[in-house]
Design a binder for these strands. Structure first.
Lengths: 228, 228
DNA sequence: TTCATGGTTCGACCGTAGTCGAAACATGCA
DNA sequence: TGCATGTTTCGACTACGGTCGAACCATGAA
């Protein structure tokens, strides 16, 4: 009857609690097995299997078979982007699944958004890179400046390796807790990896939280000062 | 059990066909009455009323009572943004509600995205403004340059009036058909209004399509040339 | 006041889709 | 080959929620 894409189909796919739990778990960026996702969603393996194949068909997920395991991950960054947007709407409407607690506090400070850093520290990183002239918006695309390239390399990121990949280097991603953009793309991912390699931060095993050590926090603030 | 916002609640709200139809209709940016939306969704007025109040509670809509009419609109630009993202996923997965036809062609060329111009011409406008240095990305925000301000004013847009409003002047919005950003925000809205005022284009009454006249198309291309 | 129109509430019906148990299938290991 | 583990398929149950008819409420016009 109507024109345009069938948004109800996709939204309904996301709109089931069990599936939403799995998708949220996959926002960690890690590929997870059917059993792990069943556990996350609080549902038996059979139902999880059914849900996962439907989301796969719907283009939300991609999978990789490895021996007798089947690993699922979000299909694209776009999917993660939409999920983050939905989180923003849900948070804005005051529909948190759990009232704000200590865990929530950590998530707002720093967390993994698919594969890059989000939350307060994510937006601070982005703002600081902008303010120092390391990244700039050229045309519709966020680009790394010459100074930025030098900085990134000196920071220990193998820029050439990133450039060789097809994936876009820089992208904006809207943060649900800060309601401002932060850095995504392969560079965003590289920054997070580098923070972990330097032992500035480590990922919480049980949630999306990224835990900075006191020393790491200090180094981070030194290198990425507030723009104002 | 899980941390974070309840995305299933919001997604399920969008995921019902009747509600999705109403939301899609509201992407035109026009405020519509209960009866009109019932018509759009192909459902009786009672059920429409129920759906609308639920979406209102969920923060997706806002409403305004006017006499015995009740007008509904999307609550914020963020909602429109997420809907556009969902359309992108649905289109990417090949789930169009109707197979591509002549109407679809027009939508891809130029359409209304909430209140601003989207589709091929929307992204062309944005790219051209960027390339000519009229807008630039400063920090995390898209800003109008001094030259841009002069241009906009000379084009007949009352910039002072826009600035006086609280709403952000420029924003990016991701286009589902082009898969690239275009200009949103109050300036995006103002451009579309100006195109209509100049009779370069008019809105299709029955769809989200924006129909450019041959003359309007030529003027548009002259003023907003391809960046390449 | 009376009437017409737009919207809401109530109650009942019904179908879809989420759920799980059981059994089959697949893969790796000994 | 046999066994253990991971995943899928099948079938049946159930409940949640979308739907509508009917009656009720609200507003504006005559």
């Amino acid at each position: 009857m109507k024109e345009g894409p069938d948004i109800a189909y996709i939204a309904a796919l996301i709109g089931d609690p069990a599936r939403a739990n799995m998708l949220t778990a996959l926002m960690s960026g890690k590929a997870l097995t059917v059993s792990e996702l069943a556990e996350e969603a609080g549902v038996t393996i059979q139902t999880a299997s059914s849900h996962l194949s439907r989301m796969d068909d719907g283009g939300l997920l991609r999978h990789r078979k490895q021996g007798r395991h089947k690993y699922f991950a979000l299909a694209t960054d776009d999917v993660a982007h939409v999920l983050e947007g939905l989180m923003g709407l849900a948070a804005g409407a005051g529909h948190l699944r759990k009232r704000t607690g200590p865990k929530d506090e950590k998530l707002r400070k720093a967390r993994v958004c698919y594969n890059h850093l989000a939350g307060d520290m994510g937006t601070r990183l982005y703002d600081s890179l902008m303010a120092q002239g390391y990244v700039a918006l050229k045309g519709e695309i966020v680009t790394l400046t010459d100074q930025g390239a030098a900085f990134v390399t000196s920071f220990g990121i193998d820029l050439d390796a990133l450039v060789r990949k097809k994936a876009p280097l820089c992208r904006e991603c809207l943060d649900w807790s800060e309601r401002r953009p932060h850095l995504a793309g392969s560079l965003g991912r590289a920054f997070l990896s580098r923070f972990e390699a330097l032992s500035w931060a480590r990922r919480d095993q049980k949630s999306r939280a990224v835990l900075f050590s006191p020393g790491g926090d200090a180094e981070f603030t030194r290198l990425f000062p507030f723009p104002g």
